[in-house]
């Protein structure tokens, strides 16, 4: 089943990247969400899958049963999800603000900080 998830993560990555390169704010945000989901799936699959046996120490025992799922990638993904959300929220705030200030959702037109065309450097350095 890990291989299926590998294929899924590949597809999510490809879809996310394609959307992010579209140059439109909303599609970019959608792509970002897909990409962070894909990253979590990658970590999850790489840590191996265990069906229906969560990593808890049962009452009366000192250590979990050896057959429980790998706890480590779960801990990694849990924080990654929250961080991914923080990133998305920030990107959304930026996107919204950019739209308000610049009046466009086409990313290539958002160049208030870049000069319209960088002039070719023709200055001749003197000795």
């Amino acid at each position: 089943m890990e291989l299926v998830l590998a294929a899924l993560s590949g597809f999510l990555v490809a879809a996310g990247a394609y959307l992010m390169m579209s140059g439109q704010l909303v599609r970019f945000l959608f792509g970002l969400v897909l990409l962070s989901n894909a990253a979590n799936v990658v970590i999850f699959a790489a840590g191996r899958l265990t069906y229906a046996n969560p990593p808890f120490v049962p009452d009366g025992a000192k250590i979990p049963d050896p057959s429980v799922a790998n706890a480590l990638p779960q801990a990694l993904i849990l924080t990654a999800i929250v961080i991914g959300f923080g990133l998305l929220a920030f990107a959304l705030a930026l996107a919204f603000r950019a739209y308000q200030s610049l009046g466009t959702v086409v990313m290539d037109d958002m160049r208030a900080c870049d000069p319209p065309e960088i002039p070719t450097s023709t200055e001749k350095p003197s000795a």
Binding site: V82, F85, G86, A89, F90, L92, A93, F96, R97, Q100
Partner: peptide, 20 residues
């Protein structure tokens, strides 16, 4: 931290959208 941060983002976004 999670409660405060996410609430802050949410409020600020709603304010901005409302003002807009």
């Amino acid at each position: 931290t999670v409660l405060g941060s996410v609430s802050a983002i949410l409020f600020a976004l709603e304010d901005a959208v409302y003002a807009h």
